[in-house]
């Protein structure tokens, strides 16, 4: 390993801070991470930051304001490697639900003085604004995957974050398929792996926190969800959560949302 430790920055955009907490949650590994890299900027965990250029930037959150749209350009300029962490940064997050409605109307309901709110009509992924070198999925991200991404950077190898279905994780774990055996609606077959099939391990259907897997076939899954008794509105809603603005989920919720509106 080189003598000079890579400098790391952690940036926050529109988000709940949960993914940054996953980094703090590393606990035992955090000491090893701090040994191996120089955590130079991390407002969630440190009082003062070091300005300048960074070898690696972890970016949490989506772009929802004109100010953030500018700021991400600055982050990109300062970063050799830019990694987005979490559903907000990779897909726009839960706040991307605004993309389907009128955000001014929301603001008028929520805020006493909506005129002070300077926000964009949409919540968008970091990759919609700047070049992203690697995207780590999840809401929140998996601490094990984050550690692996950092370890892979240090070792100069590919991270082990396969883009296949959550079903593979379920089957490796020996879980029983909740959809086939219990008739529980589950997004596992169209969802990116990474969580270790957390919900199906506790007898729940997958909520799709990691967003669409590679080559997802949401229309076919939706047909099956309909056979299991979900109406168009319910199908539209299962795709309208943390990754509602990810293309495959957005198309599917819009397809069923439109049908539902006609009902």
């Amino acid at each position: 390993m080189s003598a000079k430790k890579p400098r790391l920055a952690v940036w926050k955009f529109a988000s709940c801070d949960g993914c940054q907490l996953s980094l703090l949650d590393c606990e035992d590994e955090l000491l090893a991470i701090a040994e191996a890299i120089d955590i130079a900027y991390f407002p969630e965990a440190m009082r003062a930051g070091v300005r300048g250029a960074y070898d690696v930037s972890l970016v949490e959150g989506s772009v929802t304001t004109p100010h953030d749209a500018q700021r991400i350009q600055d982050v990109r300029r300062r970063s050799k490697i830019l990694i987005t962490i979490g559903a907000c940064a990779t897909a726009g997050g839960i706040q991307a639900l605004r993309n389907f409605r009128d955000v001014r109307e929301f603001a008028s309901i929520v805020y006493a003085h909506p005129a002070y709110i300077d926000t964009l009509a949409t919540s968008t992924a970091i990759a919609d604004h700047v070049k992203v070198d690697f995207e780590l999925r999840g809401c929140p991200i998996s601490k094990a995957q984050l550690v692996d991404v950092v370890a892979s950077l240090l070792a100069g190898r590919k991270p082990a974050t396969p883009a296949h279905s959550t079903c593979i994780e379920c089957k490796i774990a020996g879980n029983v398929c909740v959809m086939v055996a219990h008739g529980t609606p589950c997004l596992g077959p169209v969802t990116h792996a990474g969580c270790g099939a957390l919900c199906p391990s506790y007898d729940r259907g997958c909520y799709g926190c990691y967003g669409p897997k590679e080559t997802p076939n949401a229309p076919s899954l939706s047909s099956r969800l309909a056979e299991l008794g979900m109406d168009a509105g319910a199908i539209a809603r299962v795709y309208s959560t943390f990754n509602s603005n990810a293309e495959a989920f957005r198309q599917e919720s819009e397809r069923h949302g439109a049908q539902n509106d006609q009902d």
Binding site: I168, K171, G188, N217, S220
Partner: peptide
């Protein structure tokens, strides 16, 4: 058009 490429069959 029907296949989810979820890999359950192979698992």
């Amino acid at each position: 058009a029907r296949c989810l490429s979820c890999a359950n069959c192979t698992m």
